[in-house]
Nucleic acid binder design. Sequence first.
DNA 1: GGCCAGGTTCGCT
DNA 2: AGCGAACATGGC
Length: 324
Amino acid sequence: MKETISLLTPFSIERTMVAVRGQNPRLVLAHPEYPVFTKVIPAEGRDIPVTVSLVETSQGPAAEVELLQACNSKETEAIRVYVGKMLSNHVDLRPFYAQLQDEPVIGSILPGLHGLKILLEPNLFQNLVRTIIGQQMNLSFAASLVSRITEQYGTPVTIGDHTLYSFPKPEALAALEPDELLPLHFSRRKAEYITGLARQVADGSLDLNAMPDLADEEIFNRLLPIRGVGKWTVECFLLFSVGRTDFFPADDIGLKNAMKVLWGFDSQPASPLMLEISRSWSPWRSYAAYYLWAWLDDWKLRQKQEKEQKKPVRGKSARKASEE
DNA sequence: GGCCAGGTTCGCT
DNA sequence: AGCGAACATGGC
């Protein structure tokens, strides 16, 4: 059973996926021509496995969602909503471009990133756990921890000859002693953070579903007291799960670097200055930040390529190249 | 082999 | 309030 969701343009599949691959180096796409990813989506209390393919159709870009289990109409609708949110299909980039294109500095980077959208993780609990796992870890190690905890404690869903797993429910992780995560190569501290968070969600003392209706400041007030949740983690939550479009994480190191290079500052700009500069980008400050991050990644790549071109080929890399 | 990674907490001035 | 160490593992 296939559902098609047409994507609000501008939407660049290529640009959006390049940015996502940067965040998740282990993301393996099942199809070489266009992005396909498999997900188990919670819908109406059931975990439903789907594949999502991003394709260009004659009607424009679209997400083709293949339901790998039979679904009733309510479940199907819940999946459409989830995937739509995942792809930020409720966000129209045109007013963002219209407002920022004439800005002196940031306006110049918009054309090269045209159609870049933020991919969201609509499952709030999953986002928090993943972000906690990702703290101060190299990205590929973090990804392997996520897959271990998913395969161990997620709900298995069998499709033909292979098994997919939903992300573990708060209840499943709440039932664990932190020690039980040590064999999966979690640090004891991180294991405590995750089981502690899961317990608060499972026993109802932390209502994540209420978060999107609260003001940013109130979300900070509720999440920061949780052990293992600091400022950075809440910022990731707001930007990449709740989907706030007007939040500027002015203390982020990547943004500081991007603004240093783009604005030509001698050193990293201080956060108050960054907030001052970003003020006129409201209500699009999240997208402004995301575009600055993406621009910096591109810039770093260009720098690296230039360096390699200048360098004469010799030594280890020459040997490697000739072996191939 | 050592250093450090998109962070957070804890203990010490 | 502000600073530094510890946390576990893998990649360079």
